[in-house]
Amino acid sequence: MTTDQSSSGKGRMLTGVAWAVLLLGLWLWGRDLTDGPGGSAAPTTGDVAAVGRPLLQVELPDAHDPVAGVRPGRVDIPSLGITAPVSARGLDGTGAVDPPPYEKPREVGWFGDGTRPGASGVALMVGHVDTQSKPAVFYGLSSARPGEQVKVTGADGSVTEFTIDDVQVFSREKFDAKKAYGPREEGRAELRLITCGGTYDHAAKHYTANVVVSAYLTGAAEAPATS
């Protein structure tokens, strides 16, 4: 083996290790997301039978080329009536991505060490489904359907628009981090929105599943010029 081949092999190995570590953290994240107060008695997964089922006669637009991506400041899902501020979140002491605090139930967390919305890859956002007493920001997320829009406004005022192309529920026991967080199509700019799903297990004190909404970039507008 030549020196160049050896270096290339080591690079691929390190990349694989980094990906495995990231997936482990995201798997823990997916599990931790199901831990919550379970205060709301209403269903948290909407029409479970429809989640993940392709809808007929839904014509999806072409993907927009990835852009540079910026730090997100707000996310809007008009069809669900969701408008929420976005804050960057890191990892907690266990290596899992730290969701927004329960004291801020209307806030969405973005994995700040990952992809920025609009850039090539998968940008990850998470929000709580409820608190002890009321619904939280992603309470209605499972009602999202393919073809609906998600708009992310950057801290600089730019807007990236995503189109939902898939909604799935992953059970806690069979959570697949690569399938949930990996790209659906290589080379696209994608977005994942994640919250709790299934039912609340009061004995175990966690939800039984995660709702994962997948979307891809279909439009981008630069920040308005300042005078």
Rank of each mutant, 00 (worst) to 15 (best):
T94I: 05
D156P: 10
V75Q: 13
R106H: 04
G30K: 00
G69T: 00
K174G: 07
A177W: 09
R31C: 01
P78V: 00
P85Q: 08
F170G: 05
P61R: 01
G81E: 06
V122D: 14
K134T: 06
T83P: 00
V150F: 10
A155N: 10
P117L: 12
V67M: 07
R71D: 06
R145N: 01
E186N: 13
G112T: 05
R12Y: 05
V213H: 07
S142R: 10
V129K: 05
V51I: 12
F138N: 04
W19C: 01
T83A: 15
W29Q: 02
T83Q: 15
A136H: 07
T83F: 04
T195V: 12
T218Y: 02
V167Q: 07
D130V: 02
T45K: 06
R192E: 08
E103N: 11
H128A: 08
V159K: 12
E185L: 04
L24C: 02
L22W: 02
K10G: 03
A88F: 09
D47Y: 07
S143T: 12
A68M: 02
V51F: 00
V97Y: 13
D156K: 10
V70S: 12
S143V: 02
A136T: 01
A20N: 03
V211F: 07
A189P: 04
A221R: 15
G182A: 04
A84N: 04
L55D: 10
I82N: 10
D98R: 14
L33Q: 12
E185N: 06
R188W: 05
A41K: 11
D165C: 05
T199V: 14
D35P: 00
P85R: 14
E148N: 09
P66L: 04
Y200M: 04
F170H: 15
G198H: 07
L193M: 15
D32F: 13
Y181A: 14
P61N: 02
K205T: 04
H206T: 03
V169G: 07
T44I: 10
R184Y: 07
G52E: 00
D98I: 00
L55E: 14
A155S: 15
G187C: 09
G147D: 08
K178Y: 10
H64I: 01
L124I: 14
A49E: 12
P72A: 00
L28E: 01
W19T: 01
V169T: 14
L193V: 05
A119T: 00
T15N: 15
P100G: 03
F175Q: 08
Y216V: 06
R31V: 03
L217V: 06
R192V: 11
H202P: 04
A42H: 05
T15P: 03
T163G: 06
E107D: 06
L193K: 09
V108W: 15
M125V: 03
R116V: 00
P101Q: 11
A155I: 15
D76E: 15
V58W: 00
L193Q: 09
S133R: 13
R172E: 02
L124Q: 13
A209Y: 01
T44E: 10
S79P: 01
P85Y: 13
A223C: 10
K174W: 10
K10E: 13
E186I: 00
D113G: 09
G118P: 05
N210Q: 09
V17W: 13
K205Y: 09
